[in-house]
Amino acid sequence: MKLLRPRPTPPPPPTPGDLLAEALDLHLDLGPRRILHGVTLPVRAGEVLALVGPNGAGKSTLLAALAADLPAAEGVVRVRGRPVREWTALELALRRAVLPQAAAVSFPFPVEDVVRMGRAPHGTSPVEDDAVVREAMAATEVGRFAGRPFSALSGGERARVALARVLAQQAPLLLLDEPTAALDLKHQELVLRICRERAEKGDAVVVVLHDLGLAAAYAHRVAVLHGGKVAADGAPEEVFTDELLSAVYDQPIEVIPHPTNGTLLVIPRRGVANL
């Protein structure tokens, strides 16, 4: 008779500064092409880390490597101090939650059921699961269409439901790939506020962003990727300079403080044609 393995238990809550994941001298290939070249990046509890850079810089590839969804060609990725290949899928699911760029569900599940999928790694009671699911839907403002089929939602609504599923997973490491891409202005701000709230509660959030203004306003740290390497890593006010961003994006860029609150504004320099 085959004995069932006991369900793994969730890890203890991290304390601020704990190293929840890291890439060490990471090289990664997609087919014949090398995408990442010697990337080293720590991810610590209590911070929002934004991955920014131009298209093709390797942001999503790095996020997928941290999630253990893509294998390293060289180097190592660790979660909670152990190489990702040494964790089982269920153990990883208790330690990191992943939001991909596109949320796809093959069957017309109701929204609430999609969010409840985030509870799959846990062996908790239905009552506890219900409470977590309700909280996640309330945070992402999707509770009002809990009974609607996921397939009937708009792109922005689907993105928020997918984020609610990630929140319901209650993993201490959140890996979010362009979570604001399909969202309107209000919900872009909502998602980044959620990221900050999770970090303030002790989690680590790694988020791929194209909007440098959002990264400057909400991230504790920013890693600027360029050509598959980390061109800079640090606080936004240290990393976001006219010279660096103009070089990385091959576009003249100005970084100026907001006149009332001092938040960095990242603005492309635009020429105005004479009329």
Rank of each mutant, 00 (worst) to 15 (best):
T241R: 15
R198L: 06
A247S: 13
L174R: 04
L264G: 08
A152E: 14
L275G: 13
A104M: 03
L185E: 03
V79A: 01
P236C: 07
R165C: 02
A103D: 15
V208L: 07
K59N: 03
E243F: 01
V222G: 03
L190D: 02
V206N: 00
E197L: 01
L94F: 00
G156E: 00
V76R: 15
I194T: 11
T180N: 11
V111P: 04
A120W: 14
R96S: 01
R134A: 15
P236D: 07
L30N: 10
L51N: 04
D250V: 12
P6M: 13
A162R: 10
Q169L: 06
P16N: 10
Q169M: 11
D184V: 04
E22K: 11
V166W: 01
M137E: 03
G156I: 02
R85K: 14
V142W: 02
G155T: 11
Q101G: 03
V266S: 10
L214I: 13
P100R: 12
G46L: 08
R82M: 06
E200W: 01
G56A: 07
R193G: 04
V142P: 04
G262A: 11
V230R: 05
T140G: 06
T15V: 12
R198S: 02
S151N: 02
R158D: 03
P42Q: 11
E200D: 14
P268Y: 06
A232P: 04
V98H: 12
T124N: 06
L225G: 04
F145N: 12
A73W: 14
A199I: 07
S154G: 13
L245H: 08
A219H: 05
A219M: 08
V142Y: 07
T180I: 11
E254C: 11
A64R: 15
T124G: 09
H258E: 13
H226T: 03
E237C: 08
L19E: 15
F150Q: 00
L244E: 06
E178R: 11
L153R: 04
R160I: 08
S106W: 04
A102R: 14
E243C: 04
L176Q: 03
P14V: 10
K2V: 14
L175I: 02
L30Q: 14
L63V: 03
A168I: 00
E91Q: 15
A21C: 05
P252D: 09
K186V: 13
S125I: 10
P108I: 00
A72M: 10
F109Q: 05
K59R: 10
A182I: 02
G123L: 08
V105L: 13
P54Y: 03
R33H: 15
V79G: 04
P121T: 13
A219R: 07
A217T: 13
